[in-house]
Design a protein around this nucleic acid. Structure first.
Length: 574
RNA sequence: CGGGGCGUAGCGUAGCCUGGUAGCGCGCUUGUUUCGGGUACAAGAGGUCGUGAGUUCGAAUCUCACCGCCCCGACCA
């Protein structure tokens, strides 16, 4: 490709609506342009890089035995009602009507469609296992699109869906995808690692996310360097000890705490109740029903865990106005010992199970209770892990201190079980003549997000540093004179023809620009290899080869093509 | 949706508080110049100051509403 024939609108300065480095570089390097919030046009260079990522994904899916299909973006709501997600995923669904008034959805994912397909086309265990995938536009009415392609209303996702006869077979399908994902991200030049994950609205019971470490990531990952444990903080647990038991104290005693409405205030003079001997009482509204949560004073509730436990669609903290009539006191004096409505469901965190000598609110403004022994004094309906892990806590597996870092989620694999196959009748006839629902898995890669993650991970002050495998062009030939009869341009054309013939993606910067402009632009866009051709070195029979992320070297004209080929085959120089 | 911020030329911005001629840098066009790291000089084009209403003799500037964009939170590939 000749530079002047394509469109590479580089920018000296980033538009002010870009915040993070990868978003700025996507714009500055002329890869994308915004049409509206969360909606982008891919320019020629951005599209080339995107296609390369897609191709890697496609090759690895095929290699893992998945088969490519293409499902409609326009979907009828009936199948979503059947699966139950018309309600549970309602907040991200784009809904529209055709001219006849019939309602449609824009696909945010395709479990319903693929399961309907499987229900119709798969009848026998002999047809299984099968794994279908597609690479297509997805639509989600994100509450807040942000960071360019990171969270967009419209994005490209690879989604795959496996159907198996048994749980064991489904695990094998899962493992194949897990391994394929590991290869995909490695081939994209990304340092991505798998972590245990919550399953969210997709459902299912076993799941890993693939994470790219980045300060700008929207996720927090808890990990152990010693044993390799890693989990999304929404799911992570630690080996932190339970609350130390003390001698069962005297009977519960009410004491006045005027004006004390925080854990911290109660831990100070004159009360001096340490936060770890306090029970924090929270009221949440779970799908419009109030629930009471008990957690240790120095712990933080993990709302994702709460949602997973309750199985509801949405939880939110109750307002003060909702709490007062329920418990008879305002937040700050709440407890679950006395005056708890009989129908109020009480969840308690495992860490305070068996704890005694605790202090909690009296459900009376300005009073607390001491000597509370949880099992004796509180009716807990359900115990579970509800707390958020903090950095430094001991790993549950090896007791070494856990660390926390931020990351970008680029892929997610789920073991779904039979949730969708049962709802949508995707059954098969087994060898024993019994009709059974297929055991499903689903597997997603945010392709456009992966592209941005590559940039977020590979850049410096001068611009993007593309891994060779996904660079829009691998080699940029930069003649410093562009008149057709000039030595530099003639040689550039020759290199261009030879490298192209060898299957290398080459761009020739034939713009009549100053050398500085060309060098700056090639670094901004981030081509892995630049071949500079100018009169000075040409006089010595040499040209320059400059890896984007390495030192420039002068090389004899006749060796230039081979030298470039070597860099390409080496996967490019450090 | 809650909280915060911002809308002035393609991009980045000044001007707004204290109402009166819309300014600068980059980019773009033309010419000269330069020719190995975003050259220099000159001449130019380009603006409904987000939209609408209001206050005023007069509004980019003050008031209100709406729209859009960005950041923090809930949601997720």
């Amino acid at each position: 490709m000749k530079w002047t024939q394509t469109l590479i609108p580089t920018l000296r300065e980033a538009p002010s609506d870009a915040e993070i480095v990868s978003h700025k570089l996507l714009l500055r390097a002329g890869l994308i342009r915004k049409l509206a919030g969360g909606v982008y046009t891919f320019l020629p260079l951005g599209l080339r890089a995107l296609r390369k990522v897609e191709q890697i994904v496609r090759e690895e899916m095929d290699r893992a035995g998945a088969i490519e299909v293409l499902m409609p973006a326009l979907q009828p709501p009936e199948i979503w009602q059947q699966s139950g997600r018309y309600e549970t995923a309602s907040n991200v669904l784009f809904k529209l009507k055709d001219s006849g008034g019939r309602e449609w959805l824009l696909s945010p994912t395709a479990e319903e469609v693929i399961t309907t397909l499987a229900a119709n086309e798969i009848n026998s265990y002999r047809q299984l296992p099968k794994n279908f995938y597609q690479i297509s536009l997805k639509f989600r009415d994100e509450i807040r699109p942000r960071f360019g392609l990171m969270r967009a209303k419209e994005f490209i996702m690879k989604d795959a869906y496996s159907f198996d006869t048994t749980d064991e077979s489904a695990m094998a399908s899962y493992k194949k995808m897990y391994d394929a994902y590991t290869r995909i991200f490695a081939r994209c030049g990304l340092k991505a690692f798998p972590v245990e994950a919550d399953t969210g609205v997709i459902g299912g019971n076993y799941s890993h996310e693939f994470m790219v470490p980045a300060e700008t990531g929207e996720n927090e990952v808890v990990f152990c360097e010693a044993c390799g444990y890693a989990a999304n903080i929404e799911k992570a647990t630690s080996g932190i000890p339970k609350t130390a038991a003390r001698e069962i104290g005297a009977a519960v005693e009410k004491f006045a705490t005027p004006g004390v409405v925080t854990i911290e205030a109660l831990s100070k003079e004159p009360y001096k109740v340490p936060a770890n001997r306090q029970i924090k009482t929270l009221v949440y509204i779970a799908d419009s029903k109030p629930i009471i949560i008990l957690i240790r004073g120095d712990d933080q509730l993990n709302e994702t865990k709460l949602m997973a436990r309750t199985g509801v669609v949405a939880v939110r903290p109750a307002t003060s106005e909702e709490i007062s009539p329920l418990l008879g006191a305002k937040p700050g004096s709440l407890g679950a010992v006395v005056n708890v409505p009989a129908d109020a469901y009480v969840f308690a965190d495992e860490r305070i199970r068996g704890a005694n000598d605790m202090t909690t609110g009296a459900n009376e403004d300005g009073f607390h209770l001491r000597n509370v022994s949880i099992e004796r004094d509180i009716k807990v309906h359900e115990w579970s892990d509800l707390r958020t892990v903090s950095a430094g806590e001991p790993c549950a597996k090896c007791a070494k201190p856990l660390k926390i870092r931020r990351a970008i989620e680029v892929g997610h694999v789920f073991k779904l079980g039979t949730k969708y196959s049962e709802a949508l009748n995707a059954t098969f006839l087994d060898a024993d003549g019994a009709r059974k629902p297929s055991v499903m898995g689903c597997y997603g890669i945010g392709v456009t997000r992966t592209l941005q993650a590559i940039i977020e991970q590979g850049n410096d002050k001068d611009g993007v540093i593309w891994p060779l495998n996904v660079a829009p062009y691998q080699v940029c030939i930069t003649p410093l004179a562009v008149a057709p009869e000039s030595e530099a341009m003639k040689l550039a054309e020759k290199f261009y023809a030879e490298l192209t013939a060898k299957g290398v993606d080459v761009i020739l910067d034939d713009r009549d620009e100053r050398p500085g402009v060309k060098f700056k632009d090639s670094e901004l866009v981030g081509f892995p290899i630049r071949i500079g051709i100018g009169e000075k070195s040409l006089a010595k029979g040499e040209v320059e080869i400059k890896p984007r992320h390495g030192a420039m070297q002068s090389i004899k004209v006749e060796e230039a093509v081979n030298a470039a080929m070597k860099l390409v085959s080496d996967g490019v120089a450090k």
